[in-house]
Design a protein around this nucleic acid. Sequence first.
DNA 1: GCCAACGTTGGC
DNA 2: GCCAACGTTGGC
Length: 153
Amino acid sequence: MKSESRYWLVKSEPSSYSIDDLKVDKKTSWTGVRNYTARNFMRDAMKQGDPVLFYHSSCPVPGVYGIAKVVSKSYPDPTQFDPASPYYDPKATEEKPIWYLVDIGFVAKLKDPVTLDAMKKDKRLQNMTLLQRGNRLSVMEVRANEFVAIESS
DNA sequence: GCCAACGTTGGC
DNA sequence: GCCAACGTTGGC
């Protein structure tokens, strides 16, 4: 029996990694997430094939710029073991990793991004986690209807 | 560059 | 286990 997909949103600063970078790379490992809630989503809940909204943050026009999908099972984030990496975590060991990630694959770039401003004005999106006050999660779940509303707009 | 909101750390 | 201090995020 095939399980239902869940829907996700990942944030990235386009100056460090944009939807155009993902289009070129085809897929990338989502390294550097150092928040337990976001880690738990990647480690425990994100499954291969799950659709993902690709959100650009900290840029002139924040918003959803593309569609991606989960293309791997979860596995330990290798940057936690690398002393040269800004994401190095001295408390993590190969035997007892702390941080997990999934690979994200390119699906499509939106012809017109769905801007944060437009999302705030869309009645269908009022309950989105992204729009809740003070939310800073870099990986979060999206409801199916919200995903469709954004993908098809 | 400012600042509100939030997560994490560490002293007690 | 509390909570103040600190660091980070991210929109503006």
